[in-house]
């Protein structure tokens, strides 16, 4: 995608609350690269992870409202959250059926053509990786790229990358000068929303992922989903208590790593908001 491109931007609920640092770092990086993000007006939740568990129709109608707004702007829809991305892609897939399109159009009360294309911001920034104006190379930093589930699956609908061993984030990480470590848990599930009703399961799954990243020699984990981030970052304290195992592996949004390489300061990228402090690792590598 060429520099100077514009996107209808759908942040999704968490980028305006728990994951504000993802929103802020994404905007800084895009600004630097000449990518315009025009946030949708009055956007609402995509319904993940619960609307589609009660009603198939509701699971399509909520994202359809967002698809319609992007269509009206005549721009591709840029999404940063992996869950929103998945719901929007799935809805768009379902709306390819004419009857569903008519019915959902009536439900959202607006003409709907299903014309908006949905892209994840990782795909957009991947398109810039050859021409990044690197100010501070992240050489020496070993990064485990973690994609989680919904960016890559189901492959025929999201059309993202290989669903067992994706490479997109790895090559973007390498473009910053950092080393993307090969490892086996890139697309294992972190436990998603189970951190509330079945914290025991979420903790076990997230702990497994972090242990594997650490065993692969990573200094930090890079993510592209606010829920993955919360599960992997915030819960390390609970893991220490439950498993008597100190992980101490910072988890950053890929946009924060990119922002560092483009010359932004840790303060601007809100690195302090993480619960597992990334600054000691970055300082040890002379990057902060």
């Amino acid at each position: 995608m060429p520099a100077g491109s514009s996107y209808a931007y759908y942040p999704g609920c968490t980028l305006h609350s728990t994951a504000r640092e993802y929103d802020v770092s994404l905007r800084l990086v895009c600004q630097k690269l000449g990518i315009e993000l025009r946030e949708l007006k009055d956007w609402a939740c995509c319904g993940a992870s619960s609307a589609h568990a009660e009603s198939r129709l509701l699971g399509i109608a909520l994202p359809a409202r967002t698809l319609q707004a992007a269509e009206e702007m005549g721009l591709p829809l840029g999404v940063a959250c992996a869950m929103c991305f998945s719901r929007l892609k799935l809805a768009s897939h379902e709306l390819a059926d004419g009857d569903t399109l008519d019915q959902v159009g009536r439900i959202i009360g607006r003409g709907l053509g299903n014309k908006a294309t949905v892209v994840h911001m990782l795909q957009v920034l991947d398109g810039e990786r050859e021409a990044l104006p690197i100010k501070r190379t992240l050489e020496g930093l070993k990064v485990a790229s973690y994609y989680g589930c919904l960016l890559v699956r189901p492959r025929d609908i999201v059309g993202f990358d290989d669903e067992e061993n994706p490479q997109m984030m790895d090559r973007l990480v390498e473009a910053t000068g950092a080393h993307a470590v090969p490892w086996g848990f890139k697309t294992e599930c972190c436990g998603a929303g189970f951190s509330v009703p079945r914290a025991d399961i979420q903790l076990k799954l997230s702990h497994r992922i972090l242990s594997q990243a650490k065993a692969a020699g990573a200094d930090c984990v890079s993510v592209a989903c606010p829920l993955c981030h919360s599960n992997l970052d915030s819960y390390q304290q609970v893991m220490r208590r439950e498993y008597e195992h100190e992980i101490g592996l910072p988890v950053l949004y890929f946009t924060q790593l990119l922002g560092l390489a483009l010359g932004f300061e840790p303060r601007e990228l809100l690195l302090k908001r993480h619960i597992t402090d990334p600054l000691p690792v970055l300082k040890a590598r002379g990057l902060a």
Binding site: K41, D42, W43, A44, C45, S55, L57, L58, A61, L62, R65, Q103, R106, I107, I108, G109
Partner: peptide
């Protein structure tokens, strides 16, 4: 969000359709 009232309407219409 000003979208909230539209979201409520979507919930209601889905329920009616079902």
């Amino acid at each position: 969000t000003k979208g909230a009232s539209q979201v409520r309407a979507i919930f209601a219409r889905v329920r009616a359709a079902e």
